[in-house]
Computed example of a mutant assay.
Amino acid sequence: MSNENNLITTVQGGLGIISLDRTTHLNALSLPMIQGITAQLENWSDLPEIQAILINSNSPKAFCAGGDIRYLYDSYKAGNTQYQDYFATEYVMLNTLRQFAKPVIVFLDGYVLGGGFGLAQACHIQVTSEKSRFAMPETAIGFFPDVGATHFLSRLDEIGVYLALTGEQISSSDALYLDLVDYHLPSERFPELQAALIAASSLNPTEIRKIISGFITTPVESELKTLADHIHKHFAYQNLDEIERSLAHETDAKDQSWADKTLNTLKQRPLIAKQTSLKLQQIGQNLSLEKCMQLERDLQDIWFEQGDFIEGVRALIVDKDKNPQWQTENSKFEKTLEKLWPVWSKQSIEHMYNTVV
């Protein structure tokens, strides 16, 4: 057993286990944690005795609450480029996970937010409990959903747009309904499932899924499923103004309360973050995962200079006055984005053409 970089790594049976262990920060991913996950995967890749990987958490409250946004803020304020290095390193980790030759299982028990959501999506088999809450809440701090959300949320059409713009949390039942996770089982049965995986003589994908299937239960009904028609109605529009106008003019009494709440949430989010997040979801529908990730990386490297991230973190994390002064417009940045979107739109067309051909 080793415990480095807020990671506890063990080998039990044919299972290599990486446990996130930064519990005082709800396992927010520090740079050493990200580097450690990548390094451990590389160390285990050629060891035949390790047949599969399990990533879990030692926190009773969270799998992972996201990226280390305070580190990113401090780096930018210090005038260095470590925040850009953080993103680059994080995306190497995500790609390493996705491309790993052995099955990678993840246990999700508690908050799965932002970078933690992206980490979970990069794993091959996702197992969640009733305690889990999922969200990509980046617009609340003046950012946009990244870590692959341009791909995995955009596949959800209007529901993906809703989740990207509002940052609303959803339940494990919702995540299962949206196919963002594979299996649901009671939180208290995770140790028993882990023991079964450790005891297994074979841990190929078929055997792993067979073992997990012996523990699964049916969750409560998805609340998001009951809201799906409302979400489709209001979030199918191409422009942010149209979405907000649709919510504001909702006349159906059954939908009124939800529409008002959703509109109020959107009004609290900064304009540039909302517009960019909407555009990413629209463009991402026709891009490969690799192209979506590259688009996100292009934006990350210019966002801190032009977007509202620094002000959002200041108001909500640093000074905690909860009174961010969002930009109402940024002509220079909007011109930069206008130049960027056609490039990616052209690539999306090429992608569709190549897929058909």
Rank of each mutant, 00 (worst) to 15 (best):
F63W: 12
C64I: 13
C64R: 04
C64P: 12
C64M: 14
G66K: 03
D68P: 01
D68E: 06
Y73H: 08
Y73A: 01
D74G: 00
D74T: 02
S75C: 05
K77P: 10
K77D: 11
A78E: 13
A78G: 14
N80E: 11
N80H: 08
T81Q: 13
T81Y: 06
Q82V: 13
Q82M: 07
Q84Y: 01
D85E: 14
Y86M: 02
Y86Q: 03
F87I: 14
F87D: 08
A88G: 07
A88I: 10
E90N: 09
E90L: 10
L94A: 08
L94S: 06
L94Y: 06
N95S: 13
T96H: 09
T96N: 06
R98V: 06
R98G: 00
Q99S: 15
F100N: 05
P103C: 12
V104I: 14
I105P: 03
V106F: 00
F107P: 03
F107D: 07
D109I: 04
G110W: 04
G110R: 05
G114Q: 05
G115M: 04
G115W: 02
G115F: 00
G116A: 00
G116S: 05
G116M: 00
F117S: 00
G118Y: 03
L119E: 02
L119G: 03
A120C: 05
Q121M: 11
Q121R: 13
Q121D: 10
A122M: 07
A122C: 06
H124Y: 09
I125R: 09
I125Y: 08
I125G: 05
Q126F: 03
Q126N: 15
Q126I: 09
Q126P: 14
V127K: 01
S132T: 02
R133N: 08
F134V: 08
A135P: 03
M136N: 10
P137C: 04
P137M: 03
P137N: 08
E138V: 02
T139W: 01
A140D: 09
A140S: 13
A140C: 14
I141T: 09
F143I: 13
F143D: 10
F144Q: 00
A149E: 03
T150E: 10
T150G: 13
H151S: 11
F152Y: 15
R155K: 14
R155I: 09
L156K: 14
D157W: 02
D157C: 09
G160T: 09
G160M: 07
V161S: 10
V161G: 08
Y162C: 08
Y162N: 08
L163C: 12
A164Y: 01
T166C: 06
G167R: 04
E168M: 13
I170C: 05
S171T: 15
S171E: 12
S173D: 06
S173H: 02
A175M: 06
A175T: 10
Y177C: 06
L178G: 00
L178D: 01
L178Q: 11
D179A: 12
V181D: 01
V181Y: 01
V181A: 02
D182L: 03
D182H: 07
Y183F: 15
H184M: 12
H184L: 09
L185S: 04
L185K: 07
P186Y: 01
P191N: 11
P191Y: 04
E192H: 14
E192D: 13
L193T: 07
Q194R: 15
A195G: 14
A195P: 10
A195D: 15
A196G: 11
A196I: 07
I198D: 06
A199I: 12
S201R: 15
S202L: 15
L203Q: 03
L203A: 01
N204C: 07
I208C: 00
I208R: 05
